[in-house]
Simulated assay, not measured.
Amino acid sequence: MKIINQPRETLVNSLSTVSSDTVAQTKVERSGDALKNDTFSQTAKHVTPPVYERPITIGVSKEVEQTIKSASVMTGEAIAELYLGGSMFKSADSMSKEYDKTLSDIATERPELTENEWGFSVNEQGELKVTGNISAEDITYLEGKLNSNKALVNLANEVKANFLQYTQMERDDNGGTSKLWGKYDVTSENFADIIDFKALMDGPRETQQTTLALGRQLTGHGFIQNIAEQLGQNATVRYS
């Protein structure tokens, strides 16, 4: 699976749109809170205070207010987990270390395969499947090496699970639509046809100094850009 660079809506512009929506929701919440705390009062001494002094909420019911607050929190969670170095990126970064170990073994045993174009992803059964213009024998060998690293397999499945979970949350919090990754039709069944993990692992890396200082290997920007390009190239927009 090969990434092809082409003009497309940038993640930054999309995040700006979402950010505006979140700000609008926050204004509604603050407005609701302000009105909720507004209690009628009378300071004139000769007037008897009204008997009914319970705070009056005007504008939205408590049910609607809670829905707005919940949606705001959940959308924020999806954004953090997908685009701001959350669970998916952390799993992918840990995965890169296991990938390096396995690729080193492959380079020792079958060095020619490190020069060939091939990729791998997670299929519906949670196994790592190899694709590329290589022989069936080479595919069998590579799949055996990759799947023998259980940590690599588990982390790849974590990346997939996080992607599916939080893009669904993104849609759920926006009436079934999304301007970001949630707009694409990516499922457990077709994930392997869309996201190539080798491309992610071979993507931009931090400097050795940064890796030693922070413990991470993948760059956040490179990781996000890589996934965005793969989605734009291989996935179908369905929930925009």
Rank of each mutant, 00 (worst) to 15 (best):
Y239I: 03
E143P: 04
N234R: 15
T17S: 04
E81R: 09
Q165W: 08
A24D: 01
W181G: 09
Q209Y: 08
F89S: 08
E29G: 00
K27A: 02
M88K: 02
E124C: 04
N147V: 08
N147Y: 03
N190C: 07
Q230T: 09
S188G: 13
L200P: 05
N234G: 01
S91K: 10
A80R: 10
I58G: 03
S135H: 04
V237P: 06
V159L: 07
V122D: 05
G86Q: 05
D138A: 15
G85I: 12
H221S: 14
N123Q: 06
L200Q: 12
M169A: 13
Q225Y: 04
T39N: 06
L15E: 04
I224C: 10
T22C: 03
R54S: 10
T22V: 14
K183C: 04
D185S: 09
H46W: 07
G220C: 00
F40Q: 07
N162E: 09
D38S: 06
F89I: 09
E77R: 13
N174S: 15
T177Q: 15
L15V: 08
K150A: 15
G76H: 03
G86K: 05
A80L: 14
L231C: 10
I3Y: 11
F191W: 02
Q208V: 14
T43D: 03
M74D: 11
L84F: 11
K97R: 13
S240K: 13
S148F: 10
G119T: 07
F191T: 07
S240V: 07
G182T: 13
Q208M: 08
K2V: 11
H46D: 14
E29F: 02
G182V: 12
Q125K: 11
N154H: 12
E9D: 11
D196F: 03
N133T: 14
Q230A: 09
A78L: 06
L155H: 02
L164D: 15
I4G: 01
